[in-house]
């Protein structure tokens, strides 16, 4: 059975996708921030009468130190239990923020979690993904449209704007998927972004205040259950051969912003490499 890593797998879209994929006979490696919630998510998945192997690792992916630690543990696990092959990585963990807050590195938290964490996890697990001709899936959003990257102030130090910061991070997800395809498509890697649509989850209510939580509480009532986007993740993982396209909604390719083109993708890729202190090329030279 093939193995899939899902970040942010303890609730919302991540948990629903993990359940769906376990039903499709994939082994699940979940990552969540809170060890207790990881335990209960693991129980939830296992009690859904699946023969899949379910493992959880706890890490606060916002902090790069934590990403590196948990990736060390997961790499060891994949080498021991999965013959060094990872079929799929779902970069799903994300947050919304009402205020500018920073990580240990002094990076803005929403940018650090929604984009940089996925960038660094992918880097760390890339050799296993390549050897399985695997797939990388980001949780994108329609909100990536009508937005440009603020190249002179990607972390909103000039004045924080919760909605624009979120929109930019989702545009980053699409640009990253595009860059992965451009760079490693020829090695058999496929990268996608999923538009989950408006989903009834708690992302906008976790420790946000004022307008953000008010707006989110109103919006989420109209949202669909997370089981709906979970089907799209399962489709992108299970389909053989790999579906063509970059951005998917309800198992179908969807149009995306004209900002998603190779120049921006490459520029973001290089900036992210600098911010994480890594070089993808060096990682690839050994494989």
């Amino acid at each position: 059975m093939d193995t899939i890593v899902i970040t942010g797998a303890t609730s919302g879209i991540g948990l629903a996708s993990a359940l769906e994929l376990a039903r499709n006979n994939f082994n699940i490696i979940g990552i969540g921030r809170d060890p207790k919630r990881c335990e209960s998510a693991k129980d939830t998945i296992q009690s859904s009468r699946t023969s899949a192997r379910v493992t959880f690792f706890a890490a606060d992916l916002m902090q790069q130190r934590e990403v590196n630690r948990v990736c060390d543990e997961i790499s060891k696990y994949i080498e021991q239990n999965c013959e060094g092959k990872l079929f799929s990585l779902i970069n799903n963990a994300g947050c919304a923020r009402s205020w500018y807050m920073t990580t240990e590195e002094g990076y803005e938290q929403l940018f650090a979690l929604n984009h940089l964490a996925g960038f660094l996890v992918t880097y760390r697990l890339l050799p296993y993904l390549i050897s399985a001709s695997g797939r990388v899936i980001m949780t994108g959003s329609e909100s990536h449209k009508h937005m440009r990257i603020r190249w002179d102030d990607v972390m909103f130090q000039n004045g924080y704007h919760p909605l624009l910061a979120y929109k930019q991070s989702k545009l980053c997800n699409l640009l990253f998927a595009k860059a992965l395809n451009d760079r490693y498509g020829w090695r058999g890697l496929h990268a996608y972004a999923v538009d989950p649509g408006l989903v009834h989850t708690e992302i906008g209510c976790k420790n946000t205040g004022g307008i953000v939580s008010f707006v989110w509480n109103n919006r989420k009532r109209h949202g669909v259950s997370p089981d709906v986007p979970a089907k799209t993740y399962a489709y992108l993982c299970a389909q053989q051969p790999a579906p063509k396209g970059l951005y998917f909604h309800l198992c179908k390719p969807r149009r995306y912003s004209a900002q998603v083109e190779w120049k921006n993708a490459e520029r973001l890729f290089r900036l992210s490499e600098t911010l994480c202190g890594i070089r993808y090329d060096e990682r690839m030279s050994g494989i």
Binding site: S98, W99, Y100, M101, F156, N158, G159, G209, G210, S213
Partner: peptide
């Protein structure tokens, strides 16, 4: 963040943006 979110409206108006 949790404290200010719990205070609701008054938390939001007295909070100063860090940046």
């Amino acid at each position: 963040m949790q404290g200010i979110a719990a205070q609701g409206f008054w938390g939001a108006v007295t909070t100063n943006p860090l940046e």
